[in-house]
Design a protein around this nucleic acid. Structure first.
Lengths: 223, 223
DNA sequence: GACAATCTTTCATGAACCTTTCATCAGCGA
DNA sequence: TCGCTGATGAAAGGTTCATGAAAGATTGTC
C-alpha cells in the first residue's frame, strides 16, 4: 500500500516510515502542510497519516481540503497528547481515526490495517484472482497448495496490479508504488520484478500482461 | 490526448513536450500569450499546460478568457516557486491544478493523468462504439472478449475518430492529432495506421469509412 | 482509360521488454 | 564468529514488436 506521512518532525516521520517500509508499504514523506495539499490532489497514496500541527498550512485545513474535493481516502490524524480538542476537531473535519503522540508503533500499524480494511481501498475488496487469495493485512498470497512465500517487493507488485483490477499500470506508477515517489531506482527494475513474479505465478491461473509503452496488468489466464 | 503547452521558456517547453509525446500524447507548443488565446478558441487540444508569466498576454488572462467563453477544458497552471499568491489567483481564475517550478516530470505526468480522469475529458468517460468500449484514462479498448492490446498510435487514431462522433476527419487533422501540429511525418502514414487499425477491428461491429479528398470517419458497421 | 487517392504488405530499425547472471547485503542458525 | 540462504538491484545480452518509409496493387473519379 502507498502511504504518505505528513509530519514536520523529521525524526518521527522517518522512524514511522522505516517501519512501514519494513512491512512492505511504499512510503512518501512530506514535512509541510502546503506541500501536502498539493501532493494530495494527485492519486499518489492510498492512505494518509497526518500531523495536526504543521508549518505552511494547518493539518486540519489539508484534511478539510481533501474532503471538500470529494477525496475519501482514509486519513489517520496524529495529535499531541494534550490536545484532545484537536482530535475532536479532526474527526469533525473528516478524519477516519486518530492517534495521540507518543504512541507505540504497533498501535499505529494496527490502526492502519483496520483503516485499509474499511476505507475506499478495501471497498474494492477484489482480493482474489485465478486460484489465488491475497490477504492485505498479512501481505500474504495463498494458493490451493497453501501459502506462497513471496518476497516483499514482489508482493507489493502483486498487490498493486491486483488493486488495478485489470487496468494497465504504467511502469512509473509501479515504481512509485514499490519505492514511493521520487526514488532513484531504475525503471528497468520493474521488469525484473515482473519477470520474477511471473516465474513464481507459473502453474497458477494468473498472468501478467504487458502493453508496450503503456504498462502492465494482471488477469486470469485465458484458459 | 492532445495537449498544448503555453510556456515562453522554449527549453522547458520542449523538454516537457518530448516526454509527453513519449507517453503517447500529441503536443503543441505555444510561446506567447496572445497566440495562445487565439489557439484556444479552436478545439485544438484536450488539456492546457499554462505558464503564468508570458509575453504578449498574461497567463491568467488567457485562462480567464477561456472560462469566460465557457471553455471548461482542464488547465494546469505552472508558477515559479516563490509566487504562491499567483497560484491562489490561478485557482480562483479557474485553473484545475497548479504546479510550482521547478518540478519533476513524473509529477507533471501524474497530474495530467489525474486531470484527464476528472475534468470534462473524463465526463465523457467510457466511450462506446459497436461492441467496443474505450477508456480514455487507461487508453485501452475493451471488446466482448476482453482487452484489445492496441499500440499507442493506433489507439490515438481510434480515440480521435471516436471523439469525432461519426464526422469525417481530414488526414492532416489526424496527423496533427497523432503527432502534434507541424510534425515532419508523411500524410501517407495515416493510411498505414488506418489499415492496421482496420485489421485489428476486423470481427467487431466497427468500421472506418473513407471519403476521398475529405478524410476518415468511424461508424458502427451497417449490419 | 487515365490519373490520383487510397490500401496493403514488406522491410529495416530501434525501442521496449524479458531473462539470467552477478555482487552485495541482511538475516539466521550453528 | 562463521557460513549459509535468500532478497535485492544493477547489468548485460537476447528477443519481440511498434514504427515509419517505401513500393506495388487496387479503387474511385473524371
Amino acid at each position: 500500500m502507498r502511504i504518505v506521512i505528513v509530519e514536520d518532525n523529521i525524526a518521527v516521520a522517518k522512524g514511522i516510515a522505516y517501519r512501514l517500509q519494513d512491512e512492505g508499504h511504499a512510503v512518501d514523506l512530506i514535512h509541510d502542510g502546503a506541500e501536502a495539499d498539493v501532493f494530495l490532489r494527485d492519486d499518489g497514496a492510498d492512505l494518509v497519516i497526518l500531523d495536526i500541527k504543521l508549518p505552511g498550512m494547518a493539518g486540519l485545513d489539508v484534511l478539510a481540503g481533501m474532503r471538500q474535493r470529494g477525496d475519501r481516502r482514509p486519513v489517520l490524524v496524529l495529535t499531541a497528547h494534550a490536545e484532545l480538542s484537536d482530535t475532536v476537531a479532526g474527526l469533525d473535519a473528516g478524519a477516519d481515526d486518530y492517534l495521540a503522540k507518543p504512541f507505540e508503533f504497533e498501535e499505529l500499524s494496527a490502526r492502519i490495517r483496520a483503516l485499509s480494511r474499511r476505507g475506499p481501498v478495501a471497498d474494492r475488496n477484489l482480493l482474489q484472482i485465478g486460484g489465488l487469495t491475497f490477504d492485505p493485512g498479512a501481505r500474504a498470497v495463498t494458493g490451493p497448495g497453501g501459502d506462497l512465500s513471496i518476497p516483499r517487493r514482489e508482493v507489493a507488485l502483486f498487490e498493486t496490479l491486483l488493486n488495478a483490477q485489470g487496468r494497465y499500470v504504467s511502469k512509473q506508477a509501479l515504481l512509485d508504488s514499490l519505492y514511493g515517489t521520487g526514488s532513484d531506482v531504475e525503471e528497468a527494475v520493474v521488469e525484473v520484478y515482473v519477470s520474477r513474479l511471473r516465474k513464481r505465478l507459473r502453474g497458477f491461473n494468473v498472468e501478467i500482461l504487458v502493453r508496450r509503452g503503456i504498462g502492465y496488468s494482471m488477469a486470469e489466464a485465458a484458459t
